[in-house]
Write a protein that binds this DNA or RNA. Sequence first.
DNA 1: CGCCGGGTTGAGCCATTTCAATGTCTGTGG
DNA 2: CCACAGACATTGAAATGGCTCAACCCGGCG
Lengths: 196, 196
Amino acid sequence: MERSFGDRQEFMTEDTPASMHFHVVSGGARLFKSLPDGRRQIIGFAHKGDVLPAYPCTHYDYSAEAMRTLRVACVPAPYLRHLHETSPGACAASLRTTRQLLVGFHNRLLMLGRQTARERLAAFLIGQGTRMGRGELWPVDPGISRADIADFLGLTTETVSRLLSAFHREKLISRERRAIHILDPDRLRAIVAHSE
Amino acid sequence: MERSFGDRQEFMTEDTPASMHFHVVSGGARLFKSLPDGRRQIIGFAHKGDVLPAYPCTHYDYSAEAMRTLRVACVPAPYLRHLHETSPGACAASLRTTRQLLVGFHNRLLMLGRQTARERLAAFLIGQGTRMGRGELWPVDPGISRADIADFLGLTTETVSRLLSAFHREKLISRERRAIHILDPDRLRAIVAHSE
DNA sequence: CGCCGGGTTGAGCCATTTCAATGTCTGTGG
DNA sequence: CCACAGACATTGAAATGGCTCAACCCGGCG
């Protein structure tokens, strides 16, 4: 049973009973947590093929909203649980994807805790560019706003904007529309790792 | 086959082939990642009963070292993998623990990305205090130094020290030796959630 | 007793935020 | 086809939270 959501529509809410899991068919989603005073942290983005949440649970522990338009296949939570209990393959597959997630989060902990704004942005650009493991050089999804980047990196939109301008001046990226193209992945990677 | 490690001994190294998993029998360990220039982020702490890493993998993605003395049972990686492939229960159990870890990391992402030093320290104290789900009020493990707290929270030891002094002045905690006792969990929780 | 590895405290600094203004693109209605 | 509104992005100037550097303290141990 598929459902479709419009731009910015929140379809999963933190601390709400997890009756459904959502398998992304097309479009993208932001996954985030927020503080009572409105501060927001983007946990990640979901694309085609991703399942939210990626693991069985009774309550969602983060919220999700559509970027532009989103189509998802809804999977009842009891069905997923049942699948995990009966099919060892399904369980192993989930364990593999959660392992991937954990490794990613370890890196992001390091990034948020110990890297400078410049390093974080470079890491983000590289991460987006190599998203699908493709031959480098994907532009950043134009559905991702400066505010999204800021909330992902724990910065402000102004800082992100200033740094993007700096990267542009240094010919590391080019900007057209909202899309960002990576021009010099090697130098960006050097910024991430080495603190340049 | 059990092994034992001395204070500060690193027994698991990032980017090294994961031949073994370590089941903590007694003592504690710090799990961390570091940048080439020495900046360090503590990913978490391991205690009795924890398994490192908690999921099958080919390479470790973080390092671990003993706090004081540590005893672990070493589990060969192929054995764990085999166990997961044959016993659905083992796989499901791993999935449950990785789910817990993921939820914790989501919260820490929010903490590192969007909370102030004061809020982070309060969150850390509450988290340590309620570690085992016990009736509140565990003191912070004295094996955890100010540097550890700082590296866990993405702060400096000086900031941690200053904030602990502030909390002490406000009668939220008491300090004796290196151990920290929680005096007013409710007010600490208010700091975490509300930004006070 | 005196050294040594934390821990605490202070003063000044700096990266990032905050506040504020201006620019740019898009869609809309006259 | 143009004027205009609104949302987002950029840029600048000023404020600030947390960091750096540096001194001092304290308890344990040779």
